[in-house]
Nucleic acid binder design. Structure first.
Ligand SMILES: NC(=O)c1ccc[n+]([C@@H]2O[C@H](COP(=O)([O-])OP(=O)(O)OC[C@H]3O[C@@H](n4cnc5c(N)ncnc54)[C@H](O)[C@@H]3O)[C@@H](O)[C@H]2O)c1
Ligand SMILES: NC(=O)c1ccc[n+]([C@@H]2O[C@H](COP(=O)([O-])OP(=O)(O)OC[C@H]3O[C@@H](n4cnc5c(N)ncnc54)[C@H](O)[C@@H]3O)[C@@H](O)[C@H]2O)c1
Lengths: 214, 214
DNA sequence: TAGTTATTGTTATATATTTCACAATATTTT
DNA sequence: AAAATATTGTGAAATATATAACAATAACTA
């Protein structure tokens, strides 16, 4: 792999996910072979980078023959090492929480939202495929579905306390939409998604005419 | 600034946005002075990194005295160089598009969603603060509000064609939620937000017990 | 006021990431 | 079957990013 001290992957993992997305699309289109530059063009990554990433993950192609779509996809599944789909939960069934709960394509990615939680009784009355529970049932559901990853989609003032509960009940990874940096023990993985920052960085780059990196 | 060949900022710009978020919170709490390690702790960044970033953007503090919250916030506004708030639009008034349109805190960040667009007549009947228009009015609204940045929140199959229209009508930056890498001329800034990837990378790291980078 | 101390600002060092360059080689062509 | 060719795989070089180290100094202390 790499000599990376902390963790054997970073940017490269993100790109593997990116490649997988493209390959799934190519697969659906019936394409069955591709080259590093094909995928590079598709994903906006240089061909060398694609090969380097594949090399890091021990993905082999054939010289002169490129790679096989089906084979690569299954190699990638193997990298992601899924024992079936992953049960996750969403805390906060507001705008973002509901968008996620309504999104039907997660299942293709083996992401399985088993429940959502909200303190607002009116939200708890929502009838949908994915249930809305009170916060009292958080521990029960986490245990029942062996949930290791959760999404935080509550307003900023509530986010840290929700996060603390999740960690207490054994969640090891959190995707956080609240615009606050959550404090967690070192071993807990946090992915902060700050949509305002995402938008603002584009606005900034547009007004400065500078290229964003992917 | 830096010797970065393409653009004078990357990770550092993202962090400046992060710092700003924290400082705005500190400001609201009535805090008026902070140190590199204070902000570092708040944002999960090392104190050295904070100072390095400030240095890159020519932000000065006082030795031994730290930095002033108010002053820093206004210096940051200056970096972002906003001539008042920025008019942006959202194409696709579905789950994500509506979440964005309903979000009341963008205004604090001087992000101003002036209109949304959808092909679905039922969406066009939505009555809300932020209007929903047919795609026919796209050019008119872009021109009227001098829109330079747009958000794409349509299903994947429609995303490229929507993107092409936006570019044709003069939009220079796009935040894209569809899980596809949009093809645009070099000068157009694209920020692809792939929520499946964001979730999946956490799931992966949790199952591998490896730390994510911020 | 002089000495002490905490904190900045920056230079140097270490690490990570990307790009380059090319040898190795499977496939295609003649 | 031999030669030509396109493509991979990877080590070396270039670039970017992060960490460490510390001199400079403003603020504090006595
Ligand atoms: N909607 C956007 O476009 C947008 C953009 C940027 C950031 N965000 C952030 O994402 C988060 C979610 O945004 P949203 O628009 O979905 O908000 P929302 O207000 O629509 O939904 C939040 C939900 O969380 C619930 N909630 C509040 N406190 C709770 C608690 N302690 N435990 C459980 N549930 C609780 C509320 O009842 C509500 O249903 C917020 O932190 C917001 O700042 C959203
Ligand atoms: N909702 C999520 O949690 C989630 C997660 C991951 C990715 N995404 C992606 O984000 C995008 C938006 O997701 P969503 O859940 O809001 O979808 P959605 O189906 O709720 O909304 C899409 C909207 O786009 C409109 N639309 C379709 N074609 C259009 C066109 N050509 N021009 C203008 N409008 C058009 C539809 O009428 C609909 O209102 C999709 O690409 C989706 O794959 C969403």
């Amino acid at each position: 792999m790499k000599k990376n001290t902390k963790c054997p992957l970073r940017k490269s993992l993100r790109r593997i996910l990116l490649y997988r997305g493209s390959l799934l699309r190519l697969q659906a289109l019936g394409v069955n072979r591709f080259y590093s530059y094909t995928l590079g063009k598709e994903t906006g990554v240089s061909a060398e980078q694609v090969r380097k990433d594949f090399s890091e993950y021990r993905i082999k192609g054939n010289q002169r023959g490129g790679y096989h779509v089906d084979q690569l996809i299954s190699e990638m599944e193997h990298i992601f090492y899924k024992k079936g789909s992953q049960n996750i939960i969403v805390v906060g069934r507001g705008n973002i929480g509901s968008s996620l709960a309504n999104y039907s394509n997660f299942i293709q990615r083996q992401i399985n939202i088993v429940a959502t939680f909200d303190i607002d009784p009116s939200k708890q009355r929502i009838r949908s495929e994915i249930p809305v529970y009170t916060m009292e049932r958080l521990k029960e559901i986490i245990d029942r579905f062996a949930v290791r990853t959760a999404i935080v989609a509550v307003p900023e003032p509530a986010a840290q306390s929700v996060c603390d509960q999740l960690v207490e009940y054994g969640v090891g990874g959190i995707i956080n939409f609240a615009p606050v940096i959550l404090k967690v023990p070192d071993e807990v993985i946090i992915n902060n998604i700050n949509l305002s920052d995402e938008i603002e960085s584009v606005i900034y780059c547009v007004s400065q005419a500078c290229p964003e990196e992917s």
